[in-house]
Design a protein around this nucleic acid. Structure first.
Lengths: 164, 164
DNA sequence: AAAAAGATATCTCTAAAATACATGTTATCA
DNA sequence: TGATAACATGTATTTTAGAGATATCTTTTT
């Protein structure tokens, strides 16, 4: 029983975006500050965008930002979303089940209750809870203000419509 | 996030032994009635014995049985035992942790709470709860009484001291 | 002594996760 | 308008750990 790093990276990405509230953040910046492979992160970002958690902007001055208020994003919903395609046990798979006791297995129902308890805890926690007042986290994930950091570079503060 | 089949097989084995209360059951019989590979099961049985859940008897008329009362075996304890060697996430591993936000990560503490809730549910359920009055399960896992089934064979009802 | 059971270490296979690569699309800016 | 820099996305490769197989050993009964 191990969390996929997909889900782990998804949460790190969301935390990073929450810390840099509203600002556009590049994938490469997230990869760096979250200690993730940029390629792997690309797939995670894609999934986050397709599930409506973030908005992405292509192009030269593109980047990512949260597309919902951090209050509205619960850890539970993200986990359910990213762990959905991996059944917790054989008896939770769709196709035919080889376990002979599956039809009358009380362990199965017990596991459902335990998983409900697991996700129940995660449902009570939002992105804000993870980030708010966490100064140490801000120090690690907060990127310099692009307006200042990019002085003398080609990058400007963008103002465009975003997809998803 | 997926349960290891190790843990799954451990639970099936214990349920099978609980149904055949007190009787010696052979590994091959469990493998058959639980739909498991006999080789994989061997390793699981070994771990169950070394952790004091079952007693094994070698030799010609050997087999397995529970070494504790089924009331005393909680699902939670078995799960903790068998899932112990697989850390739930990178930040729960022993060695050095590569995740940069680990020292101040509130997701980590949230996960600990969620896992506690998960195991908390499992702790309230014992082997007896899974088996008692479950007639369908008995039909699947209960082996014919060896005294009757083995009439005309070389096998006799054994009475010997068991290890572990 | 032979046979039948489990004990245990090691090796191989396999599936899925992780990672890398390549190409496409979009947007900005000189 | 062409170059560049960003994300999108499908595919391929690598890695890893779980699962399964094999072989040898020990124990016990007959």
């Amino acid at each position: 029983m191990r969390l996929t790093t997909r889900t782990n990276l998804a949460m790190r990405t969301l935390m990073c975006l929450a810390v840099n509230d509203g600002k556009l953040v590049r994938k490469s910046e997230i990869a760096k500050s979250c200690g993730a492979s940029e390629n792997h992160l690309a797939q995670v970002i894609n999934a986050l965008a397709q599930n409506g958690y973030i908005s992405t902007l292509r192009g030269r001055s593109g980047g990512l930002r949260l597309s919902r208020d951090a209050h509205e994003i619960s850890v539970g919903s993200v986990f359910r979303c990213f762990e959905a395609d991996l059944p917790f046990a054989e008896c939770f798979e769709n196709g035919e089940i080889k376990c002979p006791i599956s039809p009358c297995c009380r362990l199965q129902t017990t596991l459902k209750r335990a998983l409900a308890a697991f996700y129940g805890v995660l449902d009570t926690v939002t992105l804000v809870d993870l980030v708010d007042g966490n100064t140490e986290l801000h120090d690690i994930l907060s990127l310099s203000d692009p307006v200042i950091a990019m002085l003398g570079t080609t990058r400007a503060a963008p103002e465009a419509k975003m997809q998803a």
